[in-house]
């Protein structure tokens, strides 16, 4: 195993352990999206009678939103943990070893990936309990997990970048409401064509979150919709690239070691 791979592995192990040992951080990331799923499915059930609404229950339609909320929790988790490391001096301890900056960022995302997979499993379980089925079958579940991992990496990297830039856990948490607003300005509640307000439809069209929601949703309720999946994966990969890029820039400012 190369030095970088070894460093990423041990830092990921640490990140995963740390994540799993903070039930107070994990439970809301699982319970909150599931609660919101059941609440919105109950309250907005009538929307499924709208002309043009997909021929599924509103519960099945809304299930995709839980995965997006889970990804947003990944932002906070990875970033807050790193901000804590900066504040406590633990980053200085790591910086005194031959650890590379790339290993620091990638290792930090290990916990976000594990949490993302665990969350996705819980959301799927809640979906099955609520009567949902996956239109793309077992293959679709695998693709869904790949998309979830990409989103955990991408959103986690945005959190890491914010932590490296500010060194402040509260600043990282400040990203959370911004991303939630973006989520609500997407297609989480209605398909794009059924959004009645022009400006809202325009915002949802340019909002990258829309394409992630649509890709996850297509796997659950539509079947193999390749253009929608391609757009979703393109956005997810784009967020990974932007997140890692911003992290790399912020890392140079944070790690001043010679």
């Amino acid at each position: 195993m190369s030095t970088l791979a070894l460093q990423v592995r041990v830092l990921s192990e640490r990140s995963v352990r740390r994540t799993l040992r903070q039930p107070a951080a994990i439970i809301p990331a699982i319970v909150f999206p599931i609660m919101l799923l059941f609440v919105s499915a109950g309250g907005l059930q009538a929307a499924q009678n709208l002309p043009g609404f997909p021929d599924v229950s509103y519960f099945d339609f809304a299930l995709a939103v839980t995965f997006m909320q889970g990804a947003i929790f990944a932002t906070g988790g990875a970033g807050t943990d790193l901000a804590t490391d900066i504040d406590s001096g633990f980053l200085n301890r790591l910086s005194l070893t031959p650890m590379s900056g790339a290993a620091l960022v990638l290792g930090q995302l290990g916990g976000a990936i594990v949490l993302g997979i665990f969350q996705a499993t819980c959301y799927l379980g809640a979906g099955f309990i609520g009567g949902a089925s996956i239109a793309t079958g077992i293959g679709g579940v695998i693709v869904l997990y790949v998309l979830v991992i990409l989103m955990a990496i991408g959103f986690g990297a945005l959190g890491v970048a914010a932590a490296l830039r500010t060194g402040n856990g509260e600043a990282v948490q400040g990203l959370f409401p911004v991303l939630f607003v973006l989520l609500f300005l997407s297609t989480i509640n209605l398909p794009l064509d059924l959004i009645p307000i022009d400006w809202f439809r325009w915002v949802a069209t340019v909002n990258p979150i829309t394409y992630l929601v649509n890709a996850v949703r297509s796997l659950i309720i539509t079947g193999w919709d390749w253009p929608v999946l391609a757009a979703g994966f393109a956005v997810a990969i784009g967020i990974v690239i932007v997140g890692i890029g911003l992290s790399a820039v912020a890392l140079r400012g944070r790690l001043q070691r010679t």
Partner: peptide, 14 residues
């Protein structure tokens, strides 16, 4: 070198 910097910088979860 080895260093123990100000405040013991440890991870309370490990």
């Amino acid at each position: 070198i080895g260093a123990a910097l100000q405040e013991a910088a440890l991870d309370k979860f490990l």
